[in-house]
């Protein structure tokens, strides 16, 4: 039976879809069967990040309205040998065509076949958000080390706590710029975790490769050496119950020879 987790943040642009794609991929790489559901009706992009957009025939609205069977709408990611599936959102319909009951029904239909179901929540706390949390056993709240993002996350955590899910909400702090955090220009990890007073699931560093990877449709987590990728892999391991220490915020200082010979390394 699958555990369903909603990935939400309140604020837009903090990396919900990117996190959903990378966590889904990381869990699939660890031999778990994962289904990702894009609930951002009208503004879907999980399929683009996964590089699966050309294969969409049916979407979640077709399933909910009975125009298609669930298995027809599921897109198998061929890179992962029957481990990773995507249920895409509709692009051409309005937001309010789905109800929370539709999502619960779809998630319950998927439960027997998967280990994890990741629900990619739209920004905001309107109908789309209510739909997404209705189908979830637990929530992963994403925030960046900026006050607007933390404040929105706080609101969302409040709403999630009212909902009383099976699993307590957990936090991912995304897009951390180590230099700024070390210099005290942004809120630090302890400060954010203490303020939101929910468990910290992991941290992910800001990384140009994430953007490159999204553009190419290959989630960054597939590159084992990348810094953001390590963050996502650690988070996936923690979701599976392992205890993994947090990554340190050390910056990479270019050595004397690197500076002289000018070979630019992308790693922090």
């Amino acid at each position: 039976m699958a555990t369903s987790l909603v990935i939400t943040s309140g604020k837009g642009g903090v990396g919900k879809s990117t996190t959903a794609a990378n966590l889904g991929t990381a869990l699939a790489l660890m031999n778990k069967r994962v289904c990702m559901i894009d609930l951002d009706i009208g503004l879907r992009n999980l399929d683009v990040i996964m590089g699966l957009s050309n294969r969409i025939i049916y979407d979640i609205v077709d399933v909910a309205s009975g125009r298609a069977q669930l298995h027809q709408a599921l897109i198998k990611d061929k890179r992962f040998d029957d481990k990773l599936y995507l249920l895409p959102a509709a692009q051409n319909t309005v937001k309010n065509v789905l109800s929370p009951m539709d999502i619960v029904t779809i998630v319950n239909q998927l439960r027997p076949d998967f280990d994890y179901i990741l629900l990619d929540c739209p920004a905001g706390i309107e109908q789309g958000f209510q739909n997404a949390i209705a189908g979830a056993d637990g929530a992963i709240v994403i925030c960046t080390p900026e006050i607007p993002s933390v404040s929105d996350a706080d609101r969302v955590v409040g709403l999630l706590e009212q909902k009383q899910m099976k699993l307590a909400p957990r936090l991912i702090i995304n897009r951390i710029i180590p230099g700024m955090m070390n210099a005290g220009d942004t809120m630090d990890i302890d400060e954010i975790t203490k303020h939101l007073s929910i468990g910290l699931l992991g941290i992910v560093f800001e990384d140009d490769h994430v953007i490159l990877a999204s553009n190419k449709g290959v989630p960054v987590v597939m590159d084992p050496e990348d810094n953001a990728s390590k963050g996502y892999r650690n988070i996936a391991r923690r979701i599976l119950g392992e205890s993994v220490p947090l990554m340190t915020l050390k910056e990479h200082k270019p050595s004397f020879f690197e500076r002289i010979f000018g070979r630019k390394k992308r790693r922090h």
Binding site: D152, R155, V157, G158, E161
Partner: peptide, 22 residues
């Protein structure tokens, strides 16, 4: 008390919790 939440009482209150912005 998180952003967007309200907690109301009709007696005096000794508050030991955390009142967040909003």
């Amino acid at each position: 008390i998180r952003s967007g939440q309200e907690l109301a009482f009709d007696s005096d209150v000794l508050f030991l919790g955390n009142l967040h912005q909003g």
